[in-house]
Design a protein around this nucleic acid. Structure first.
Ligand SMILES: [Zn+2]
Ligand SMILES: [Zn+2]
Ligand SMILES: [Zn+2]
Ligand SMILES: [Zn+2]
Lengths: 131, 131
DNA sequence: TTGCACACGTTATAGCATAACGCAATTGAT
DNA sequence: ATCAATTGCGTTATGCTATAACGTGTGCAA
């Protein structure tokens, strides 16, 4: 299955994230959308749940925040393991993917007979400009 | 250098984590330590900050929880990148380290001229018993 | 003695996330 | 068409996670 038509709330949240420079918390999104009628956190969280499910948005666990997916290709397939660099200086987040890491992690985890459902890789530090 | 003598609060928090089967949130730790005189979250968070700094404890970003480090060796050196498998069924957390992943990530990040300060790798899924 | 660093205690507040209720619109049988 | 199931939506209330800001006491060095 691909991505279904987004509902109004989902589109608004997606738009807010897509036009944002960096990651946003759910409450920041809420504040951005008050003028479009948003009143309560659940409106944001429910939209985010769907967008995460569709793979249009990623959650940054170490930030309790969300970013629009920056994958170039269409979102009609699982894009395996996603990793992020997160600059503590300017807040810039860069998404990247790597087969080698994915396979190495997969092998290690197989050794534990562990069944992976979701992998989080987040690298905090400073980007080139903020070094 | 190395790990200084722990204060009373730090020892209590460390003990609670070391004797726990799985990860604990700061508030769960607080509840476990009420009988030893803990009254407020900050008592826990301040101790955790130090224990994290000394490398005796790890924070699980995807759980907002903490675990005692299970590294076999002494804690007198940085143990590079730490990764975890986290079972959604039984809560079991397994810490592991891998040079190959560390170097691959390091190379990828160097390509962005990014300076790493902290790396988070957490794999959620189900362990052998909970498959 | 004075100043500093550090741990500690307490109260209050900020920030993140979900439970539980009810309603409305959609879909897809029967 | 009708009914049931699903899904999205709005609202209120609540719970969980983390830190700000203040003051105290202790140990140690200048
Ligand atoms: Zn992506
Ligand atoms: Zn930067
Ligand atoms: Zn460790
Ligand atoms: Zn398990």
């Amino acid at each position: 299955m691909g991505t279904p038509q987004l509902t109004k709330n989902q589109s608004l949240v997606m738009g807010a994230l897509a036009h944002s420079e960096g990651p946003m918390s759910a409450y920041t999104i809420l504040d951005k959308l008050r003028d479009q009628g948003f009143r309560a956190p659940l409106q944001v969280y429910r939209a985010l749940d769907k967008l995460l499910e569709y793979g249009l948005v990623h959650r940054l666990e170490s930030l309790n925040a969300f970013v629009a997916c920056t994958c170039p290709h269409e979102h009609e397939h699982d894009h395996g393991v996603t990793a992020f660099t997160i600059c503590e200086g300017c807040g810039q987040v860069t998404e990247f993917h790597d087969e080698a890491i994915e396979e190495r992690l997969s092998a290690l985890v197989r050794g534990q007979s562990f069944k992976t459902e979701k992998t989080t890789i987040e690298i905090r530090g400073h980007c080139k400009s903020c070094a």
